[in-house]
Every structure is written in C-alpha cells, then in structure tokens.
C-alpha cells in the first residue's frame, strides 16, 4: 500500500526539525483556535435574545389586591404572587422567625421596610418549579401540589423536599400603592 501518515511526516534529512514542527503545530493550533471562536456564536445564539432580555420589568397597582387576597401576574413569563397579608398572617410569620427552618430568614427580610403587608414572590416552587397553591399546608402559606412542599405566610419553606424559600424578585415601591418589578 501507499505511504502512511507516519511516513509522510517523518523527518527528512537536511531539514531543520524545529521549523517543520513549528509549522504543523502552528497550523493545528490555528485550526483549533478558529474552531473555538466559531463555536461561540453557535452557543451564544441559544442564550436569551435581545427582545427577551428587554421585556423585563412590570408595574403593578397594589390597590387592586384585597387584604388577605393574592393576585398572580405574569412576569418574565413566570407567575408572580402578590399577596396582601392580614395582620394575623404577618404575626404568625414573625412568631416563627426563630423556628427551626431549612432556609432561615426573618419575616422582615422577606418584605420591604414599611410595607410588611405586601409579600411579592416568584410563584415557582424551589423544588422543581411547580406553582404552589395559595392557602395550602398547615402554615396558611402555600402548598406545592407536585411533591408536597409547604411554605408559610412569608413564603419560607417549612416542610417537604424544596430546599429554599420562595424566591423574591427585585422590586421597588414607586408609591405606597404602586410597585415596579424587575
């Protein structure tokens, strides 16, 4: 059979081996570098597109939420819970501030100062992402229908498989009754 790759690249007499190797190595390195550079656009195209990233903030008028009630709005294509907590619900959450919890947090850290009645959470169970049901579970917070995670009235995980408290989105109060989320 004809020459093999090994024969062809074997050193030739009278040839500076360093220079020959350099050219092969440079060509292979350039090819590898080029391939890596080409790969990036093909990976990055799967990241959120500019229009997805831009549609990020939402404003909401809280006066539409009755005391003790919860509304669910859509934010970044996910459910967002806005709960107007009663004094009793706040008290029961504050009472448990130092109870034994998986993800310890005080009730005050879950709301904005001076707006303790407003609890704004991402409606996505921290276990595997189902939407927890309002008022379920023995703490009067939420119960996840998928695998039974129980959250209290501050959205903290109290029992079940979920590892973390319900996530708080970034939001600010524009006025006492108006919030901007995101």
């Amino acid at each position: 059979m004809a020459e093999t790759a090994a024969d062809a690249t074997a050193s030739t007499p009278g040839q500076d081996p360093n220079r020959r190797d350099f050219i092969y190595i440079a060509a292979v390195a350039a090819a590898a570098g080029g391939a890596a550079a080409v790969a990036w656009p093909f990976i990055d195209q799967m990241n959120p597109a500019a229009d997805t990233l831009a549609a990020a903030s939402v404003e909401y008028d809280l006066s539409k939420v009755e005391p003790g009630a919860q509304v669910v709005i859509t934010w970044r294509k996910q459910p967002l819970f806005i709960r107007n907590r009663t004094a009793a619900q706040i008290a029961s959450a504050v009472k448990d501030d130092h109870a034994d919890m998986k993800d310890p947090a005080t009730d005050a850290s879950r709301v904005k100062p001076g707006h303790a009645q407003w609890l704004i959470l991402l409606g996505s169970c921290t276990h595997l992402g189902c939407v927890p049901t309002e008022g379920g579970g023995k703490y009067g917070g939420w119960l996840c229908p998928c695998h039974g995670s129980v959250y209290d009235t501050a959205g903290r995980i109290r029992s079940g498989p979920a590892p973390k408290n319900l996530e708080l989105p970034e939001y600010t109060f524009l006025t006492d009754t108006k919030v901007k989320i995101g």
Partner: peptide
Amino acid sequence: IYLLVFTGLLYAVYRKVWKN
C-alpha cells in the same frame, strides 16, 4: 485576517507535505 493567516499556514504545510 484569521483566514488569510490560516490559509498561509496551510499552504506552508501543503508545501512541506508534498516536498518530496
């Protein structure tokens, strides 16, 4: 720029491989 350099390198490799 990359393609020009890379093509030049490949040409050098080509000349070496076919030298004999």
